[in-house]
């Protein structure tokens, strides 16, 4: 292979995809994001068949395969279902360390991912104990809200067992 090479290295042609998308949020999620932005409330959508309350809200239940109907307010507290603490930098993300958790808000049937604050992340083992599954967190809203999932984050509650 190298015998036939005539240049000092492989010839590389750079390519990039900078393509703008306008993702339609849809009426159901739009209501959810609007409630976050304007009223600082988290709403779930309930399946009339199995009764599960979906956050993020879904217009349908994929298991029962029916349209969801009612809105129910959930939270503002909830429980950690899964978490990670990021120690390596990733393109476009906060400077590490930072924590991300999947939280089932009180009254909800599904978990929602967001950043978690209020934890000293300097020691991974200690921090992982603080964020252990079952830990309680509360929704904390940003001062300036834009109708995005980052309008809020989770804050670890101090009285965890």
């Amino acid at each position: 292979m190298s015998e036939t090479a005539t240049t000092s290295g492989p010839l590389i042609h750079p390519g990039e995809w900078h393509i703008h998308y306008d993702y339609a949020v849809g009426d159901t999620a739009a209501r959810f994001f609007t409630e976050l932005r304007d009223n600082m409330k988290v709403y779930a959508r309930r399946c009339p068949s199995c009764g599960r309350a979906f956050v993020p809200p879904r217009a349908y239940c994929e298991r029962c395969f029916v349209k969801t109907t009612d809105w129910v307010e959930v939270g503002p507290e909830g429980v950690v279902e899964a978490f990670t603490i990021v120690y390596e930098p990733f393109d476009g993300l906060p400077v590490p360390p930072y924590a991300v958790a999947y939280v089932t808000l009180d009254g909800a049937s599904t978990a929602l991912a967001n950043f978690v604050t209020g934890v000293d992340l300097s020691d991974p083992e200690v921090a992982s104990e603080a964020l252990a599954l079952g830990s309680r967190v509360a929704v904390a809203f940003a001062g300036k809200r834009e109708g995005m999932i980052t309008d809020f984050h989770f804050e670890l509650l101090g009285h965890n067992k």
């Binding site: 998308y21 999620a29 994001f33 993020p56 978490f83 906060p94 967001n114 950043f115």
Partner: peptide, 23 residues
């Protein structure tokens, strides 16, 4: 990942794998 709920929180393969491992 979902552009509405997951990408803004930075979910990627390795983060999600870590979250699954935590469970």
């Amino acid at each position: 990942y979902d552009p509405f709920y997951e990408r803004p929180v930075g979910l990627s393969d390795v983060l999600d794998a870590a979250a699954v491992a935590s469970t």
